[in-house]
Amino acid sequence: MERFKIVRAFILGPLLEATVPKPGNVNRYRDFGDLTIYNFLFADTAVIGVYYEAVKTAELLRKGIISFSEAGIGELIKRAVQASREAQDANPNFGVIALSVPLIMGLTVGRNILDAREKARLLIEESTVRDTMELYRAIRIANPKGIPSGVKYDVYSDESFRELFRDGINLARLAEMSCERELIFCEWINGYDLSYSTFGRLYGLIKELPLEDAVVEAFLELLAEKEDTLIMRKAGRREADLVRRKAREVLNGNLSLQEFDAFMREEGDLRNPGSLADIMAVSLSLLVLRGLRMEIRNGKVWGVIGRP
């Protein structure tokens, strides 16, 4: 698969995700006090160089010049987060970066889009303790909301680096321990199940609905199916479950989308479904890679797969 095709897909996907007016998220109509659409524009385009380097590193993997354990995915994630932070002053895309880097490399090594998920999983499994340490440094740079302190392998404790080394905690072991608290880690160890199923759902929906409507519908289905782990970390499981039940009401026709969006924003960004937004960004990247282009029909943007 062409280098630039992969990189373009994983830049455009997150930009589409940030632009579409999804409930509870920053979008082209709505901002939060400390996070705007401009943060996403600057952050998501700042990582182009690191993503390109991830592809080149994966080409060495494919040729057998380096092994999976030498891929350095932790450092690549850290450098992408650093580039994002240098371009703007918030944390709009840590989750997207952490999901994208292994998958970008998997797409380069794999035979096709479906094979890529297995290769990405192998990268996580064969990662080293150093990759985990670099991920920790990336988290410190991004400083995401809701990270617990005082826990085993505390991200913000310098002692944690000694503990990670002592216990041999690579990214796979870290993900297994942390999956319940963060969807990204579940995706790593489950072969990107949710990202790929959402990609498949989007592929079907764009045949029936304008692009924005298709993305909103797929996002509502995600919210109705899964508790968002960012909401859970910030506001607790009861709040996350309430969001899920409200999303089901929208799908059942018992609550309007506008009422749901108002509910999602009435506590500021407390109910911002950031983890599921990260899943949507990667799913859209896969859709772009599959050949997504746009057409305007009667003033609406439609997503179309394939050449004109």
Rank of each mutant, 00 (worst) to 15 (best):
202 L>R: 08
130 R>K: 14
1 M>V: 10
201 R>K: 15
184 I>Q: 05
186 C>E: 00
185 F>A: 10
46 A>G: 08
56 K>S: 08
194 L>H: 00
245 R>P: 03
146 G>H: 10
254 N>L: 13
206 I>G: 01
72 G>T: 04
87 A>G: 09
59 E>N: 06
10 F>D: 03
205 L>C: 05
210 P>R: 08
193 D>I: 15
31 D>P: 11
16 L>C: 08
28 R>T: 14
19 T>C: 08
40 F>A: 00
146 G>T: 03
247 A>T: 14
78 K>A: 01
67 S>F: 09
232 M>S: 04
114 L>C: 12
84 S>H: 04
224 A>I: 06
46 A>Y: 03
130 R>P: 01
147 I>N: 07
15 L>P: 06
128 T>G: 10
144 P>R: 02
30 R>Y: 15
16 L>H: 07
29 Y>V: 13
52 Y>H: 09
302 W>I: 01
152 K>C: 14
90 A>P: 07
196 Y>T: 07
92 P>Y: 05
216 V>T: 10
303 G>T: 08
58 A>N: 03
278 D>L: 07
155 V>D: 05
56 K>R: 13
198 T>W: 03
200 G>C: 05
131 D>P: 01
164 L>H: 02
152 K>V: 15
79 R>S: 03
76 L>H: 02
174 L>K: 12
116 A>L: 04
91 N>D: 11
135 L>W: 04
210 P>W: 07
58 A>S: 13
237 R>L: 12
117 R>D: 00
176 E>K: 15
111 R>V: 13
257 L>D: 05
176 E>W: 05
232 M>P: 04
21 P>A: 01
160 S>Q: 12
22 K>G: 03
146 G>I: 01
230 L>N: 10
255 L>Q: 10
88 Q>Y: 11
124 I>C: 06
247 A>W: 07
8 R>V: 06
193 D>T: 11
195 S>R: 00
224 A>K: 05
41 L>D: 01
267 E>I: 02
181 R>M: 09
